[in-house]
């Protein structure tokens, strides 16, 4: 009986904790949005964050995009050759990158490369009481620290995803046209005929924007909300990566089911 009560109590505590955190996260995001105007008045802060989360992620995004494209080229050629339609390699590479792989893989990489860094930075600021010190000096940490990091991530993400897709298509072209010898004209013309700007490219950009918002939000919130200890910061970083990955994949399913129903 006692054990049952204890279990129920733990369940109740977990639920209350979860709801409280969710409410806190929602209020936090509203506050970040409200102070975003102030941080935009000092644009260099946001530009600095675009440098840290965008420019410094460039290498991993470009290299992974290239390799994903190379693999797609090899696999796609192997599959399409069975149906005698290896000319459609361009379509397959471009559509799979623009619709799914570009936004999703770029967002996963972005979450682990830039999101974790943002969480670590804010978490460490909190642990060393820098955020409180700012508050004491009448500097709002949400406007000074959190909002620029949030917007830096939101702005960087679609650009990174676009570069990922472009590099992937280049990789597919390298394998398909240069290495295997698919006809260059057929590769590009079939791709252009099948890829629609609004339906495929723009929907991919919308996806990457949504992922950017989700990842940046999770990253800044976990940093701001972490336990101010060394262990707490490390846990917050882990949570950022795990929650971001789950959020990206779940959101991807929801967005895909709205965008590409095939009717």
């Amino acid at each position: 009986m006692n054990a049952l009560a204890a279990t129920l109590r733990r369940l109740g505590a977990m639920t209350i904790d979860g709801v409280w955190r969710l409410g806190f996260a929602a209020r936090f995001s509203l506050a970040v949005l409200r102070y975003s105007g102030q941080s935009f008045l000092r644009l260099p802060l946001t530009i600095r964050e675009i440098y840290f989360s965008g420019v410094l992620s460039l290498l991993i995004i470009v290299v992974s995009g290239l390799f994903v494209g190379l693999v797609l080229g090899l696999q796609g050629y192997d599959i399409l050759r069975r149906f005698g339609s290896s000319d459609a390699l361009g379509i397959m590479v471009a559509l799979s990158l623009l619709r799914e792989l570009g936004p999703v893989v770029a967002a996963l990489l972005f979450a682990s490369r830039a999101g974790s860094a943002v969480t670590a930075e804010i978490g460490l600021m909190k642990t060393t009481e820098q955020l409180q010190a700012m508050d004491m000096m009448a500097v709002n940490p949400l406007a000074r620290v959190v909002a620029p990091r949030f917007w830096g991530g939101v702005i960087s993400m679609p650009l990174l995803a676009a570069m990922f897709s472009a590099m992937g298509i280049f990789g597919g072209w390298l394998i398909g046209v240069v290495a295997i010898g698919v006809d260059d004209g057929a590769f590009w013309s079939q791709m252009r005929a099948a890829v629609d700007f609004r339906y495929d490219v723009l929907n991919g950009v919308i996806k990457s924007f949504v992922f950017g918002v989700a990842v940046s939000w999770i990253a800044v919130f976990e940093g701001y909300d972490c336990q101010p200890t060394a262990e707490g910061v490390s846990r917050a970083i882990t949570r950022t990566v795990v929650y971001s990955a789950l959020a990206i994949l779940a959101l991807d399913f929801v967005l895909t089911s709205f965008m590409f129903r095939g009717i």
């Binding site: 965008g54 460039l58 676009a162 897709s165 298509i169 890829v195 700007f197």
Partner: peptide, 20 residues
């Protein structure tokens, strides 16, 4: 970085996709 990103978008729009 921003120029590269916009360049990639333009590449996707013009070379890969077609405005229907």
């Amino acid at each position: 970085f921003v120029a590269l990103g916009i360049g990639a978008l333009i590449f996707l729009a013009v070379k890969v996709g077609s405005f229907s």
